[in-house]
Write a protein that binds this DNA or RNA. Structure first.
Length: 441
DNA sequence: TCTGGGGTCCTAGGACCC
DNA sequence: TCTGGGGTCCTAGGACCC
């Protein structure tokens, strides 16, 4: 099979079978491409996608990148550029992107069984040695099938480790001559590609490490690959050492097919307009608690801790505190929406300052355990009875069938025109998940 | 005027145990 | 003058990812 086992005490590797090749399949400009599938008028226009409240640019088409719209820039700062180049602007439409993502992943599974869905727009795949002779044509096959079945263009990078596959993918995107597929096989080709990859572009090397490395004269992935282990470990810890070994072709990261339950669940939004009334704040926070509880139940877990945070404008007076939060320990682990909303509500009472104007709030659940492992306290009444569990299950299935807002706590407000609701002025339709929003021809 | 929303892992240090 | 030798658990903070 050509498999072998790694086991290195330094890296705490438990030993996993290592396949010959890893592929990284990544959608090109995913959000912009999703919009284009259903609006062909966008095909030859630059496209920019805005954050939830239409505040920042969070995704761009290739043309918009070329014009020089940076990632994460506040929209108002590039408004002149948007007008000048007639850039199409959309609010983020996660209902659409999430569904399209699922279609891509399902399609990919028909090509190769062992995949790890790594993010909304990318997946790793383990390619067995039987494809050895035709890696490139296999990559092309994946690419053309996803394009035909979903309308979305992807790039494919194939190499001996996940980190190298990431680099291969990036390189395939940058140089159109590769036709969207790059296989890193020979040492010579690996060397060439690593020499033109800046350290900051390596998966696992962020802003901080990148700056440190450059200060030490380490400019490219090839430079980093050639540093001694001890040098790397002292500056970048064990995770950095794994990255370097991966650059040398020694796999340290396995495909992770099973999705582990989340250890923290966060629900937060910036408000459409700033909020200074405690009632509005409570509505919003109840809504976030409900959303977090839904996510919690979806993974069959319960939580024993909640953190509620109120956030004011951090740009207004730099240096001043702008986050005001508190932890709430729940008497017993629960996934009951009314209980969690109640706890959040009480927290708002304690945190609220009538003199402040709030821009955003959070509800975060931690202390998460599987629901079948609830440790009940002998002296405290259970906070997640069978009855509550069944009621929540019923609520979730109603909302799954008829839409998220169908059955809600009264405390989350009656919907429609709350000031804290997101702006989303440029939202496209939920073409693939709502009967009443199908594309009209 | 206007500035996203989620997550993960690792390490150091302190408290505490026998 | 001299002051054991191990552990574990928790938390805060820093790094990273999309």
């Amino acid at each position: 099979m050509g498999c072998y086992f790694e086991c290195d005490p330094l890296l705490h590797l438990t030993g996993f079978a290592v396949p010959a090749f890893y592929a990284l399949i990544d959608c090109n400009n995913f959000y912009a491409s999703c919009e284009r599938v259903f609006d062909p008028a966008l095909l030859n226009r630059p496209v920019a996608i805005l954050s939830n409240n239409d505040g920042c640019v969070i995704a761009r088409s290739a043309e918009a990148k070329e014009i020089g719209i940076p990632m994460g820039i506040p929209e108002f700062k590039v408004r002149p550029l948007i007008r000048k180049h007639n850039i199409a602007v959309r609010s983020s439409n996660y209902a659409l992107y999430g569904d399209m993502s699922q279609r891509v992943m399902e399609t990919l599974k028909t090509c190769t069984p062992n995949i790890e869905v790594y993010s909304i727009d990318e997946a790793f795949a383990e390619l067995s040695t039987s494809y050895m002779d035709s890696m490139r044509s296999y990559g092309e096959y994946i690419r053309s099938r996803i394009l035909r079945w979903t309308g979305l263009p992807v790039s494919v990078g194939i190499a001996g480790t996940k980190t190298l596959a990431k680099i291969a993918n990036e390189t395939a995107k940058v140089y159109p001559s590769f036709g969207g597929v790059l296989v890193l096989e020979s040492d010579e080709r690996i060397r060439k590609v690593l020499m033109r990859t800046p350290v900051g572009d390596i998966w696992g090397v962020g802003k901080n490490y990148s700056a440190t490395l450059k200060n030490h004269g380490v400019q490219t992935a090839w430079d980093l690959r050639n540093q001694p282990d001890s040098w790397v470990k002292s500056r970048m810890k064990v995770t950095g050492l794994r990255t370097v070994w991966e650059l040398r072709g020694r796999p340290c990261l396995a495909i992770e097919q099973v999705v582990e339950p989340r250890k923290g669940i966060l629900s937060s939004r910036s408000f459409g307009t700033p909020v200074d009334q405690v009632e509005d704040l409570k509505e919003a926070v109840s809504m976030f608690a409900s959303r977090a509880a839904e996510k919690l139940r979806a993974q069959h877990s319960v939580a024993s801790n909640m953190c509620v945070m109120l956030v004011t404008n951090k740009y207004a007076s730099p240096g001043e505190p702008y986050k005001f939060g508190m932890d709430v320990a729940l008497p017993n682990p629960t996934a009951d929406t009314p209980l969690l909303a109640q706890a959040a509500d009480a927290a708002v009472d304690r945190l609220y300052d009538p003199g402040k104007t709030y821009k955003k709030a959070w509800v975060m659940l931690t202390g998460i355990v599987p629901e079948e492992e609830i440790q009940t306290d002998l002296f405290i009444k259970s906070t997640y009875s069978q009855k509550q569990h069944d009621l929540m299950e019923c609520m979730d299935s109603v909302n799954a069938r008829y839409g998220r807002q169908t059955m809600n706590l009264a405390g989350t407000g009656l919907g429609g025109n709350q000031s804290w609701q997101m702006k989303q002025k440029h939202l496209s339709k939920r073409y693939t998940t709502r009967w009443d929003e199908l594309m009209e021809v």
